[in-house]
Amino acid sequence: MKVFILGATGFLGLPAAEAFVRGGHIVYGSTRSQKSAEEVLAPNEIIPVVTDPYSEEGRKKWGDIAAQCDVVIDALSANGAKPAIDIFHNFLKHLDRPRGSPKPTYIYTSGLWINSRGYGGLGKWTDERQPTSTYNEAVQWRPLIEVPVLESEKVHGIVIRGAVVYGRDGSAFASYIFDEALKASKTDEKIFETVYSHETRIASIHTDDMADLYLRVAERGPILRGQVFMASNQSTERLTDILDAVVRVSGCKGYKAKAPKGAMQEAWVSSTLIKPSLGDALTGWRPKKMSLVDGMDIYWSSYLANKKLRVP
């Protein structure tokens, strides 16, 4: 297949692009940076497309290439529906295939917080077969892009809702926890502040396991159209267990809570109780990486190494 990945140097996009390359596919990847194109994408056998995906010139450049591909994956970070909808509509605008031709597969990357129902009993649990919830205000825009993708007649539309991703440079775990712990480890007090709740349970997934789900779903696109897949480990982890593991590996003595500010931080401390099964049932996908708590020694070392690599 020919595969086009928007956001191919990102936390999700790069591992996904590498997975498709290993799978024997022709992979194009968008990046805004010529340096990233030369130092990250090209050396890994990913064909760089250097462009701003949202500019008028950029939309035409990547749209022309993507229209010739069999799979398009939106792995761009988005904070609202409009940018993601614009990306999808730009692809449809450039898509011009003869009648009767195979339809391309379009995968939109969403998030699990749209399924969160909070902490509690069986009524709070969810999976791919459950509808979205209104529990987290910060992500109520997600269905505005998910629904058009899933219902489109022009593509095999699929949505992958990722849990909180870990591995490599840490992603959200870095900004909420690792960065604060690293700073605190260099102080006399060695106590870091972070947003947490004692009842919060985190659904998480390693970036490489999510990349494997992208690959499996994309290769089966025509028979999976209209489906939503949840990329998550089989078991959730208590946020305080994650914090305790960070204390152990960072050299800190402890942590203290600070109140969440705004809808995004409220979503961070909202529990997502989930046991996904559709990826396994339809593609044989199962996460292989150690959980964040169990593998914290590895993931903390990786975070530190990646942080050094980003220093000019």
Rank of each mutant, 00 (worst) to 15 (best):
A8L: 05
A8V: 13
A8S: 11
G10P: 01
G10A: 01
F11N: 06
L12Q: 14
E18N: 11
F20W: 08
V21A: 07
R22A: 15
R22H: 08
R22L: 11
G23Y: 08
H25S: 05
H25G: 00
I26V: 14
R32T: 04
R32G: 08
Q34L: 11
K35R: 12
E38H: 06
E39P: 02
E39R: 15
V40P: 07
L41H: 12
A42C: 02
P43D: 09
N44I: 02
E45N: 14
P48V: 04
P48F: 03
E56L: 10
E56K: 13
E57M: 08
G58R: 01
R59H: 06
K60L: 08
K61H: 11
W62Y: 12
G63D: 08
I65G: 04
I65M: 03
A66R: 05
A66P: 00
C69L: 06
D70W: 02
V71P: 01
V71Y: 01
V72D: 00
D74L: 10
S77N: 11
N79I: 12
G80P: 12
P83K: 00
A84E: 12
I85D: 00
I85V: 10
D86M: 03
D86E: 15
I87K: 08
I87V: 15
I87M: 13
F88L: 06
H89Y: 10
F91V: 11
K93H: 13
L95P: 07
P98M: 13
P98K: 13
R99Q: 15
R99W: 10
R99F: 14
S101A: 15
P102C: 05
P102R: 12
K103Y: 02
T105H: 11
Y106I: 03
Y106K: 10
I107H: 07
Y108E: 00
S110R: 02
S110D: 05
G111P: 01
W113Q: 08
W113I: 06
W113A: 12
S116Q: 12
S116R: 07
R117Y: 02
R117F: 03
G118I: 06
Y119V: 01
Y119M: 07
Y119N: 07
Y119G: 00
G120P: 04
K124F: 01
T126K: 10
D127P: 03
D127M: 04
E128L: 04
Q130G: 00
Q130C: 13
P131M: 08
P131W: 11
P131D: 07
T132D: 04
T132S: 05
T134L: 09
Y135M: 10
Y135V: 10
Y135K: 11
N136G: 03
A138G: 05
A138V: 09
A138K: 08
A138L: 05
Q140N: 12
W141R: 13
R142L: 12
P143S: 04
P143R: 07
L144C: 02
L144M: 12
E146R: 03
E146T: 02
V147W: 09
P148W: 03
P148T: 02
V149S: 03
